[in-house]
Nucleic acid binder design. Structure first.
Lengths: 146, 146
DNA sequence: AAGTTGTCTAGTGAGTTGCTCAAGATTTGG
DNA sequence: CCAAATCTTGAGCAACTCACTAGACAACTT
């Protein structure tokens, strides 16, 4: 019941990118250094976020990555679903990736007692993560003041 | 972000054991057959639940497993923590198994922006799962009526 | 004593996680 | 146009976890 490093790194990388939103681009190694993330692994994450439409990138000597959606419009839930898959704790209650459980004897009768509880869990998680936007963290800079 | 089969099987096995609570013992193969669980795998689960104090067992020809705590006193959260470990989505917000994240640059300043959101998620999950008791499912029998 | 059950430890194959490497494509500076 | 810097793509890999299996052993009943 844990989120992967991928999600964690992805979120931390996005926090960096929020800081320069509307301004300059950030290169992989800048993000990697500031956030202590292995650079090649980070790259895969950035690419996934790019394919999902959150980031744009430019190659070449003054290349790098930049947010193309406003931090107001990006939620933790979105990011985690991109990098980690669906939020539901068991797939028979997933809204984005429903699958009926193969071996559950209750499944056939559609009266699985666990389903209700798990559904509540799913909704609770989604409710929190889909309402936290990245902009909500934007004021929490890493190296400010001193 | 999923629960394991272990938890799922464990919960389903406990539902069976609830039905005979106070009455006879159930043997591994009975539970396994009714719930479609590989019997040797189920055994490990039952043993873990026994070590955690939820079950008693007797060997020999009329042996088997039985609940020793009331279904009222067993919550989904307890069971899942026994079989799957802590509920927290990242370990720096776990109440039962806290560990500060090794590589997070915010960790040192104790001002990780994600921590609050993840803490809320943890609390939401725990709140639901720690309030669902097994007795709440007891009336949902598998093979009743017809 | 024999047979039936639970107990324990170890192992295993498949898949995932977290990460690395190398060969390309694209952009910019000179 | 060349070369350096950057992103892009895909493959590969060690370690781990998950779901499950196997087998020796201990204890209980008859």
């Amino acid at each position: 019941m844990k989120f992967s490093k991928k999600s964690e790194y992805g979120l931390r990388a996005l926090l960096e990118l929020c800081d320069t939103y509307g301004g300059r681009v950030l290169q992989r190694h800048e993000i990697a250094e500031r956030q202590n993330i292995p650079v090649e692994f980070l790259e895969q994450i950035l690419l996934a976020l790019k394919r999902a439409g959150l980031l744009a990138s430019r190659r070449g000597i003054r290349g790098g990555y930049a947010l193309i959606k406003s931090p107001d419009d990006i939620t933790l839930g979105q990011v985690i679903r991109i990098l980690d898959g669906p939020l539901a704790p068991i797939s028979c209650v997933s809204k984005t990736a429903y699958q009926k459980c193969a071996d559950c004897p209750y499944a056939a009768k559609a009266a699985c007692p666990l389903q209700q509880a798990m559904g509540e869990v799913r909704d609770a998680i989604a409710n929190i993560l889909d309402h936290y936007t990245l902009s909500r963290f934007a004021h929490t800079k890493l190296a400010e003041g001193s």
